[in-house]
Design a protein around this nucleic acid. Structure first.
Lengths: 343, 343
DNA sequence: TTGTATGCGTTATCAC
DNA sequence: GTGATAACGCATACAA
């Protein structure tokens, strides 16, 4: 087997417990023995066994990641890698590792979480999504297990620590932005209505229009998976209305890319014929034609803060419930323009 | 504390070891006691403690993931989520979890690996890249720790289990394809030369040309990070040569998207003025304008097979070293065309 | 078929 | 300051 704390103890002529204290850098150990023990560790190439340590200390230094059930599509979205990078950095800073489970069905995923939690595999959990009805969230909440949500919990938002943008306000600002540019026929292309983020964005859009005294039109609102398939149809319908919109608020850059392609096929020019503004500001937004005006929601920070706050909560259970709001910012590119001619 | 094997034993009126055997579904336990024990487990809401189990059985059911040092850019590439999905599915099928470590520097990453391995956190490791000189790989090889490489190891390729495409052949085919379409001025836009995949692809490209009797031109070969920044410059230089290429082999869809944008700015039309063929066939290839002809390398399978083969090796150490080659396929879209006019 | 006893490699609670 | 020793929760060799 590998070299253990006992081997080190023997070589250094001390008790195993002393070695353990040296590892923890306990202050009541004399510098001289610390040196002696460390020397022995180096000599033997000792590395502490995390599993044993976890068992004894009842903590694993691992954070569990829960991906949405539709992981296949979630993985496709550039949102994922970026938030993961943020999580990864936040975790790494505090010496935590990240662990993921996945499953084909909601049920499998749920079981995976239970195993993670009850099996003691992780010290805390990060939910990478927020659904309208979520079993997992309720389970964790009831068990009082440390977790944070990226996004806004549908229920009990003030009882659950979460990291989110102010999506309502962001979408309102974006819609105002279009309004100010002279648009008054503004459509909304959103994603899955089971996701809280979609709902929030839709509400912000509606709020803006309502405030401007513009009546909401159901046929201006479309919801699709971000993948191209369905999007095509929806956009075509939207644009063949009698009075099609002159501007579109699109919930996601990837969706916007699909919209862009459909419009291109229909020979509708962006931004001359229609303005588009989307969300997330991923690399794609920069690389599309035309480059997309997009709301930068600081995806990296969403992950980074989620990790940090979870770790705080793990290390001090008295840490209060928090809502961390990550700022957003509209990044202007070339997919939006003022209305130049009366319509 | 949580409910343990002892509590279950007590309730079911058996010894703890019997409960343990029921969990393992040991065949020498009578059906009746199995039922009895399972009933008790259900009643108490028992879940086995993975940490304790890991310590006792010296196995964690966790696979470690090692990302390339430049994780920031790696994360951006759609390759990553897809391979992760494959890994995730392969692991999940056999009830393994995935764990990642990251670090800012090569040194930090290396330390992370050591901790994973020596700390007993994982049963095996998957290297998500293959660099020309790699400390981590050498470390794992020397220690004889179970691991697989996604990509082709630069050294000892026949002593290290790895999952890869035949990138040499694929690039040769692709170049042949352009040759057959009448192109004879074909450029190559590749990525980081420290990555084995880049080298392999470059060699395939050269082989094809050499075989066709076309002299290699240094000024037709360009290497850039896939991110747009540098790519712009390189492509501009390439296209302002006296006799610019009429076709480009691009190492990656994301790079190709950058190339497409640069060409668009220069008013060079694809495929009318220049043909482009790239690799990976990620979602982007489909959504770009024009849609890219791209080599589908079955990224998902790379991950899936890597996970499966690693698990095999973990569960049976006598498993021989293997080289798994994942097939590729050219997916024709609209970025390539025959040379119609003499040049 | 089932029970007993020991070990997995640490941490932590006592003593001294 | 340092050393025994008992957990931590489970698996398994050995008995019965």
């Amino acid at each position: 087997m590998a070299v253990t704390i006992k081997d080190v103890a023997k070589l250094a002529n001390v008790a195993p417990s002393t070695v353990s204290r040296v590892i923890a850098n306990n202050s009541r150990i004399s510098e001289s023995t610390k040196q002696k023990v460390r020397e022995a560790m180096k000599q033997l190439g000792y590395h502490p066994n995390f599993i044993a340590r976890s068992l004894a200390s009842q903590s694993t230094q691992v954070l569990g990641l829960v991906l949405p059930g539709s992981a296949d599509t979630f993985f496709q979205n550039p949102f994922f890698p970026t938030v993961l990078r943020g999580l990864s950095e936040g975790a790494h800073e505090k010496q935590y590792a990240l662990q993921m489970t996945t499953g084909q069905s909601e049920e499998e995923i749920y079981d995976g979480i239970i195993q993670m939690v009850q099996g003691g595999r992780v010290d805390g959990i990060i939910l990478l999504y927020s659904k309208v009805e979520d079993k997992v969230m309720m389970y964790l909440k009831e068990r009082d297990f440390p977790f944070v949500v990226i996004g806004k919990p549908f229920k009990y938002a003030d009882e659950i620590t979460h990291v989110d943008n102010d999506n309502f306000r962001a979408t309102k600002e974006v819609t105002d932005h279009l309004l100010n540019a002279g648009h008054d026929r503004i459509g909304f292309v959103g994603g899955d209505l089971n996701l809280v983020v979609t709902v929030e964005r839709l509400l912000g859009y509606e709020k803006s229009l309502r405030k401007a005294g513009i009546p909401l039109r159901d046929d201006y609102i479309v919801h699709e998976e971000f993948l191209r398939e369905g999007g095509q149809e929806a956009v075509k319908e939207l644009m063949t209305l009698e009075n099609p919109p002159t501007a579109l608020v699109v919930a996601d850059d990837l969706m916007a890319l699909g919209v862009l392609n459909t419009l291109n096929e229909m020979d509708i020019r962006v931004p001359e014929d229609i303005s588009i503004i989307s969300f997330n500001n991923v690399l794609l937004a920069e690389m599309s034609r035309p480059p997309l005006t997009s709301v930068d929601i600081n995806i990296f920070d969403l992950g980074y803060q989620a990790a940090r706050n979870l770790i705080q909560k793990i290390e001090d259970p008295r840490e209060p419930v928090k809502r961390i709001t990550i700022p957003h910012k509209i990044v202007e590119r070339s997919s939006c323009t003022d209305v130049k001619f009366g319509l």
